[in-house]
Every structure is written in C-alpha cells, then in structure tokens.
Amino acid sequence: MKFNIFRSHDDRGSGDPTQTPRMGGHVLPAARSDGPDGPTADAVEPTDATAGPALQPRPAEPLGPIKIRARDVSVHYGDKQALHDVSVDIPDKTVTAFIGPSGCGKSTFLRCLNRMNDTIPSARVTGRIEMDGQDVNSKSVDPVLLRAQVGMVFQKPNPFPKSIYENVAYGPRIHGLTTSKADLDGVVEKSLRRAGLWDEVADRLHSPGTGLSGGQQQRLVIARAIAVEPEVILMDEPCSALDPIATAKIEELIDELREQYCIVIVTHSMAQAARVSQRTAFFHMGRLVETGNTEEIFTNPRERRTLDYITGRFG
C-alpha cells in the first residue's frame, strides 16, 4: 500500500482517507496535486498559499541573499532523463542539504552547479542555472573558472597521491593565486587551519596525503577546495565513507564554513541534514519534491512523500 502512491501522479491527492499522511496522530495537510506534470517545487518561500492551514509559519533563520537560482533544470544521460525540471534557489552563507533516496538525482543536480556533468559525454543539461545572476551554462562562462568559484568535495576522500602540502597548494598554483613561496605557504596553512587539520599535520606537511586517516583525508580535501577561495562549496555525501567521530568533525567544520560560503551538501543521512543544514531540498525520482527550511521539512513537510521519506517509510 505504501508504494501505491508513487506509482502514478493520478494516485496523489485522490482523497482516499487512508492515504492521508499522519505524523504523531496529527493529520497533515494533503499533498498538493500539481497536475499532470507533477510537482514543480518552485517554492522558495517557506510558506505556500496552497500548503493549508496546518502549516505554521515559523521564524525563518536569517538566510543570505540568493546565490544560485536554478530554473527548470533537466539532465539527460543519453536517452534516460535523470532530472526533471528542477527549480530551486540556494541562499548564500547557508548550508543547503539535498536529501532523497539513491538515484533520485540529487548528486546529478549538484554536479550541474559546477558543470561537472560536462565531463560525462552523454550528459545533456537543459534549463537555467544562475550564479549571482550569471548563467553558468552560457558560452561565456569557462567551466575552469566556474570550478575555481565552486569547489567540490566528493563522497570518497580523493586526495592526490602527493604530499599534504602539494594537495592544498595545487589549486592556488594552477590558478596563479599566489605570487611567492611564502604567500603559498600562507595559503596552505590558512586553508588547513580552516579545515581544522593544521594541528594534526603541521609537522608532516610533506608526507603523502593518502597516508592520512579517512576523516583527515576528507578534511584535507576540504582544505584543498577552500585554498582556491571559492564562493560555493558543493559536498557530495562527504561523510558517507567516514566513522561517526570523523563525521562529527566534518559536520562541525561545515557549520563553521557556513559563515563564509554558500554550502550545498548531498546526504543520505537525514539526521545529518537536520544537524548541519538550514535549508533542505527533498528529491525523489529525478524531481524536486519540496524545499524549505530544514526544521520545517523535518517537522512539518508539505508533501506526503517527504514525510514518508523522513519518517523512514521508504528510502
């Protein structure tokens, strides 16, 4: 019964009382029905006129200005459409979490933001993604420069098989951000300090980065990303390969970095999304189902599918 509602769009909002989403005995507003195209969650504002009376507007956390504005972004891998018309606004100086079951398109969307999908020959991205009002997919935007602006951290720590120093220094070096060795040393130290790794590696900067523990490697990779001084940091399940202690450290780090960067994190762990993010976007089957302030999404989602996912009924 519980999967029935995902079978087709027509099932949703059919008025069947047994399908009314419930949470703690409290009847939630019925899922919106958006017509045959499914939900195009263009809702940026935490409140929505159609959301129903049960939704209590909550004092929103102070969010930065909109950094990334995506409109109707679709991604095809060959003939297969992986992402359907995603429209979302991502504010600056905020952690935005993308949650959703495996294969729901959240990583695909993340990779659109720094045009990493360009590296996949069969991938085709349509729609518009603006960063500070500039279309990132336009011909005038060099993906190389874009990626200097939008750093990325991957699921598996992937330091270069070089020294810790070289790992961090690589980005500034290729972009010509430093003028002298002392300058570069400074950038390396600052980045490692910001990633909370300096104290652990200061005495072995020239030993291989691959010799660190998994959590240290992931922080090294974050240091490497911030050494380029990006504006946005994308994190694709950064803690899924780490133990809880290393995860806690990374989460702490993400929280600190929020003050300076626009951070987008893809995560499988709803608890993590709840802990680190201020905004949450729920993806399902290649569509953006719902976005909102994290607290709201987790306590009072508008969509039944969101509720089902966060309460562990699927995913």
Partner: peptide, 14 residues
C-alpha cells in the same frame, strides 16, 4: 581512478 580526475577538474584544473 576517476576520483583523481574529478578531484583535479573540480579544483578548476583544465
């Protein structure tokens, strides 16, 4: 490993 390529590309290496 492709992760090395991704790491470099994501840093803005050509």
């Amino acid at each position: 490993p492709p992760s090395i390529r991704e790491a470099a590309l994501a840093l803005g290496a050509s």
